[in-house]
Design a protein around this nucleic acid. Structure first.
Lengths: 195, 195, 195, 195
DNA sequence: AATGAATGAGGATTCATTCAT
DNA sequence: GATGAATGAATCCTCATTCAT
């Protein structure tokens, strides 16, 4: 029952299906057929709209990254103080929409993909840069010259907590993850203040 | 020219080839043929020795994990003080043999694999547990009740720094990585001492 | 913006596009989509008008054959003497509209198609028969009983020169091709005259 | 029942099957599966030995071209006089092994293929050059400066007769084909002699 | 011990064709 | 009259795995 204007709907459905499928499989070994079936379309249509498997993956990655970006921007827009902004960034990283087993698993797999796929790597780099610059900008007033260093630590800690959650190493709710980061951050600030 | 006593040599060669191949490919999409070719044997032999692709991967993972375990045990055996032991653990995590682009890439891929493969997951769990118990044991004298919490943070930070290095997000030499961890640790200890 | 009376225009455009596409691709491996796109319509329309890919090809073949037929008839209508008529036939075979790399390539591919497709074969047979009867009729006054034989030779020579031009074996301008045929013909006539 | 040293056997079988299949289908629209099945092996093996469909086709083309080359060389080795050598070349072109409906049909399709495939084109060019130089060399003593011209005509006539046989335009036995060529040649020589 | 030979199963991709609008 | 939407079927190709030697 073909209707007009289906393209955006199908694209979204396929992207969602891709994330779900990857999350469920726990790897990128997902067939286009499975993705398409989950999206309720034929695999041919998936190719028609995206051009190929790789581009489907990229679209899914873009989708996740964009969602994360929105989350961060939204959270930042409501805060002005450096500390509050930092906490907002951190909280955004562990918002329900991001801190979901399936999505995290997809992230992990996109990490892997970025090692082969230059386009994927580029997407990831953008995210890395943005996160870093957001962190550094808000850390500067609080820890001064240590901002770069601390930003790296926080970023690594975010990714590490993510990773371990994905691996089931440290089953952890968002709150605990945020606490860990806040703690790490607080100690630095206190020390900076004391000095 | 079949010889006797070749088995352990072949196995080792295959395992090494597997790690190299995964590291180079940046993914688990490596064929048994390629691995075998790199090891200088036929793919049939690889199957003969390991039983299948999955088991080859597992053997490679075990190899890396064992190497890491040795590293840690060796480092620990030379230290008695908690702080020194903690630093030893951290340093071992970033020893040259572990902090090598190829090996890290292989790690990353084993992470992914552990999401599907129960056996892989078990191996990883053992590593996680051991690291954690090592950390906790040596943190207890230094930070008391916070030991659990700090251990989790350190572990996550180790993995996060690893991950980001693998992704090329934060090109980083072992020294800097260790510094990051030591800093994180020191702040906790200072705070604990002060309290 | 559908208009009335578009059918013949669309059909012609599609046929032209088919020939161009085949000529460019150098094979029959052209998709209906590409043809339709080149003609500026949807592939669905192409099916609507022709019924299927095969029929599009047939229409294109018919188009080429018809064009050639016109050329010959036109040339013949201006000549009355056998020799002049023969030369006219020959010249028509290498008229610019036929002796064009693209068109020749299309011809070559229609040859191939005629091996599978009875309808295509029939079209070609008509052309073959007409050429032959034209040749024989005009050869008879010049070479008598040898007419059949010579006609076959001339026809083969026409096709052979075509073919080699299509293959790039003997880059050749129409003039040279005509000369070759005229020479072949002249020798026969001279010999017949002498005898 | 795998045995050793099967490769050349399989390759030959696959090449033969390819020619037969193309000849039968009358086009290059032959699946690797069908070829493999005819050769009595799996399609995977065909890929294993040749690398891909295109290379299978090339191998088949090479096979035909080589067979033809052998035929010509063999025929030439038994003749010394120019005229006899020319007749040998012509006869070789229509030897039973070449003048077989299936093989000719394969030729025709390789012609087409050479329009897309540079490697195929190269193979064909070699054949064209060799034929031409063979013809010219032996024509020189007989027709002098006209050698180039006559060589082109003979070559075109060979191909044209081939083509028309393939198309069923002029059902023709080898003898008649050879006669046509000899006739064409004789007329030139006589004329040259007379002059 | 070691391998060349061989394949079955599976997946990405393409495309002619159909259909509702 | 014209098209976007959609798909089934087909095909190339890859690869883990098996087996006889």
């Amino acid at each position: 029952m073909p209707k007009i204007g289906m393209e955006p709907i199908r694209r979204e459905a396929l992207v969602q299906a891709t994330i779900a499928e990857i999350g469920q499989a726990g790897s990128l070994d997902v067939t286009v057929s499975r993705i398409a079936k989950r999206a309720g379309v034929s695999s041919a249509l998936a190719h028609h709209y995206f051009g190929g498997k790789e581009q489907i993956f990229l679209a899914a990655m873009r989708y996740i990254l964009t969602a994360y970006g929105k989350e961060v921007r939204g959270a930042l827009s409501r805060q002005t103080l450096p500390m509050a902004r930092l906490e907002a960034i951190i909280a955004a990283s562990f918002s329900p929409s991001q801190f979901d087993q399936t999505v995290i698993s997809a992230w992990l797999n996109f990490y892997v993909q970025s090692q082969n796929n230059p386009a994927a790597k580029r997407l990831l780099t953008v995210y890395h840069r943005r996160l870093r610059s957001n962190l550094v900008a808000n850390l500067r007033p609080l820890v001064g010259d240590r901002a770069q260093d601390v930003a790296e630590r926080l970023a690594a800690l975010i990714d590490g907590l993510y990773l371990r959650h994905a691996l089931g190493a440290t089953p952890m709710d968002p709150t605990k993850a945020v606490d860990q980061l806040v703690r790490c951050l607080t100690l630095e600030i206190e020390q900076a203040t004391r000095a």
